[in-house]
Amino acid sequence: MDNMNQLDKSLVEVTAFLNREADMLDYKEYDEWLKLWSDTGLYIVPIAHGEENYKDMLNLAYDDAAMRKLRIQRLQSGHAMSAKTAKITIRTLSRIRILDESDDIINVRCAYCLFENKSGQIRHFPANLRFKLRRDNGTLKIEEKIVELMNSDTHLATIAYLF
């Protein structure tokens, strides 16, 4: 790593972090996943593409720390019928690109697809992901994760997990 420039080093670090995040969701390590977040972090699945003001818009999900915790409790409770049917999910990431980096913030985006087996039919959800990551005492924390599903502005199916 010594002869790599800072951007290359960050890309290695960020790629490992994003892969780990996706892996935790696929393997349902939800408690560990919650620890990846900054206290002020927002997880947003918008309906419209290319917007910024998600707070004043209707989204599919707009989770602050409290809502993230509740969503995880719901998935872990065993009382959500839909969550039981989504036993296996597979997330793939690629095309990871750092857009800009300052002392403590890294903005990154990547291509993403989630596959699930829904009653014998494999469904897939392609999306562009945008992350705002914060350097915090030598580790990375998620300050913002925005999931722009390819078809979020038309009809979706019901979704029983996090992207």
Partner: peptide, 28 residues
């Protein structure tokens, strides 16, 4: 704005394809 934002967040909590209610309705 605070009122409409509250309405939006409450709606997202239960409704829509990623709400805490709708996916279970859909399954049933």
């Amino acid at each position: 704005d605070a009122y409409n934002q509250q309405r939006l967040r409450l709606h997202e909590h239960f409704q829509g394809p990623m709400g805490f209610g709708t996916p279970d309705d859909g399954e049933a």
